[in-house]
Design a protein around this nucleic acid. Structure first.
Length: 618
DNA sequence: CAGTAG
DNA sequence: TGGCCTTACTG
DNA sequence: GCCA
């Protein structure tokens, strides 16, 4: 075996797991004296087993200290009282099983996954934040992924918990032995605001290990803006990284539109916000560029390539590698350096070395030159065709759009997609979007003066040109049924009659709860078919629908992700609370609607500062 | 449920 | 060796 | 692709 790999593996086995093993031992000796729940008898701490869920709640009993434990003495502060109450207060207080044994203290713990992206979810019920011994305050906070009010929650090293078990006592959290690096006082995180000055954690501490315990009395939880920045960052790393825009603030040359005059209005702004989002996750030492941008960009290209060829797992691997590189403060040039980073293995390490020595990657050059690739890209641009279909056509020997049209079996939609390929690919000038909407609006008000048309999509975000036309149709106090009826029975037929709507690509007819119309429209005296999407929105859902239909993509996903971090759920119908999620994030409960009407209110409830649409171009 | 779009 | 993954809608 |  490669000695480097072995060394790396050793490094990655964090102290945390060893600690858990120790804990496990302490838990299981003396079993005569301790009442274990059934779950404890299972390997509660076997978190490193492959089959374990990302997070799980374990219930177990802490045997009450025989001798060493004593109630807080007079010299102990209020902080210690919190400490003691929390440890002693049991689930049994709420009718749980533990109230029986005075010698048992039952706690419910949440163990969390080492991967930062599945990282700990700080919850308002969290009692303690217990941090891997290797992490410092800054790292821990970053991986806590919250700006909820953690200030009142004690934060200590893993060692504290281990020692508590070992000694059958509750140790004083303020002992320097248990202090998280960078903290002065375990009970007051806010007093440690000089987190910038904290020395960075060692490389091998990359895997954050935080454990949160439950059952704490309610904490009020003021929302801060930072969560949203984190959500954006999280989503962006999955999204595309536009290297050119990043480096010189200009849009990539392939995207330059011939009709564009001067610089795009959103360009500078977009650049700035990107840079900010980017920088907010970087160490704030004044250096404004990541030393690995070049490498990241090329690996990102490779990730996109693998996505195209349908290898989702390689795609994922490369994306993770890019993410890992993003967090590196120093240039990674050699294979050895690269191998030490979690998320980068043999193969990518080789490629990193190639990139930093030659400046490019042969594999990528080859892939780009591959005619199959170019066909695939063209075919996937056809409306109604995705990766599967494009590959099918390719393997059937098709190489051109014309070939498809005459020789391939096309669904009606795909046929339209091919016939109008050029038009559908073209960007639509802002002014033209407005005129399309005006025609729809005119017809709609003749059907029912109450109907409203709102232009969403990139138009609402202020872009100079749009990929398609997104219209949101609603009416004051109307239900979805009502609006749909007006549209399908009167408005759509009328628009067709006028020759405005040319094709229906995806229309909800069979389903009674359908709410969207996808098709093509064309202005009078024009031949350019445009993709037109309409969304029928009940009055009460217009706020949520606006967010959804305004986008952009990344923005939507960020907000939704943030909602799920908050225990809420956001979709085009509304913002829901009390969403229960089970294994993997599967929904158990739909949750209760919090808000749907008011876009601003939804932002507010999510704790996201209001962003005008123009600022949602992530 | 597969495929697609966002 | 097998798991890794955002959500909703349509046909 | 990476990782346990």
């Amino acid at each position: 075996m490669n000695p480097l790999a072995a060394q790396k593996r050793r490094v990655q086995k964090t102290q945390f797991f060893q600690d858990l093993d120790k804990l496990d031992q302490y838990m299981h000796d003396d079993s005569d004296d301790t009442v274990h729940t059934s779950e404890v008898q299972q390997p509660s701490f076997a978190l490193h087993e492959p089959s374990r869920p990302k997070k799980r709640t374990e219930t177990f009993n802490i045997r009450r200290p025989r001798t060493a434990y004593r109630p807080p003495s007079t010299e102990t502060s209020a902080n210690n009282r919190v400490n003691e109450r929390d440890l002693v207060s049991t689930k049994g207080k709420e009718g749980g099983p533990a109230s029986s044994g005075a010698k048992n203290i039952q706690r419910t713990y949440l163990f969390l996954h080492p991967e930062p992206e599945f990282g700990p979810l700080f919850d308002k019920d969290t009692s303690y934040i217990i941090v891997d011994d290797k992490l410092d305050l800054k790292e821990a906070l970053k991986d806590l992924r919250t700006s909820a009010d953690v200030s009142k929650t004690p934060m200590v090293r893993m060692r504290w918990l281990v020692d508590c078990f070992r000694d059958h006592t509750v140790h004083d959290m303020r002992s320097s032995l248990f202090r998280v690096r960078g903290m002065k006082d375990p009970f007051c995180i806010l007093d440690n605001e000089d987190v910038q000055a904290v020395a960075p954690a060692p490389k091998d501490a990359k895997s954050a290990m935080v454990m949160c315990a439950f059952n704490r009395p309610k904490l009020e939880r003021p929302m801060t803006q930072d969560d949203f920045a984190q959500a954006i960052d999280f989503v962006q790393k999955v999204g595309l990284l536009d290297y050119q825009q990043f480096v010189d603030g200009e849009s990539a040359s392939e995207e330059v539109q011939p009709g564009r005059i001067g610089k795009k209005p959103e360009s500078a702004e977009c650049f700035n916000s990107r840079l900010q989002d980017f920088l907010c996750k970087e160490k704030n030492d004044g250096s404004s560029t990541n030393p690995n941008l070049q490498t990241m960009y090329i690996l990102q290209q490779l990730a996109i390539y693998y996505e195209r060829v349908g290898d989702k797992w390689r795609n994922l691997g490369y994306r993770k590698a890019v993410t890992a590189l993003r967090y590196q403060q120093t240039p990674v040039r050699t294979k050895q350096d690269a191998l030490l980073i979690r998320g980068i293995g043999e193969s990518i390490a080789d490629k990193i070395e190639e990139i930093s020595t030659t400046g490019h990657l042969r594999k990528l050059e080859m892939a780009k030159a591959d005619p199959h690739e170019q066909c695939l890209i063209i075919f996937m641009g056809i409306y109604g065709a995705g990766l599967k279909q494009a590959r099918r056509w390719l393997s059937q020997g098709h190489r051109t759009l014309e070939g498809l049209l005459y020789n391939a079996e096309l669904t009606p939609n795909q046929k339209i997609g091919v016939e109008h390929y050029e038009h559908f690919q073209a960007r639509i000038p802002r002014e033209e979007v407005r005129r399309h909407a005006a025609i729809v609006g005119e017809v709609l008000s003749s059907v029912d003066p109450g109907l409203q048309v709102i232009i969403g999509g990139s138009y609402r975000r202020g872009k100079a040109d749009c990929g398609d036309i997104d219209l949101l149709i609603t009416k004051a106090d109307a239900s979805l049924d009502h609006i749909r009826k007006l549209m399908t029975q009167f408005a759509i037929p009328e628009l067709k009659k006028r020759g405005f709507l040319k094709a229906e690509l995806s229309v909800s007819q069979s389903h009674d709860n359908g709410s969207k119309w996808h098709g093509a429209s064309v202005l009078p005296n024009s031949s350019a078919w445009r993709r037109l999407d309409m969304l029928y929105v009940p009055w009460d859902e217009r706020g949520a629908a606006m967010i959804y239909f305004t986008g952009n993509d990344i923005f939507n996903r960020s907000v939704r992700l943030l909602a799920s971090w908050r225990g809420m759920r956001l979709n085009q119908h509304g913002l829901y609370e009390n969403v229960m999620r089970g294994r993997g994030r599967t929904k158990i409960t739909e949750g209760k609607v919090l808000e749907g009407k008011d876009e601003k209110k939804i932002f507010e409830l999510l704790g996201v500062p209001w962003r005008p649409p123009e600022h949602r171009n992530l």
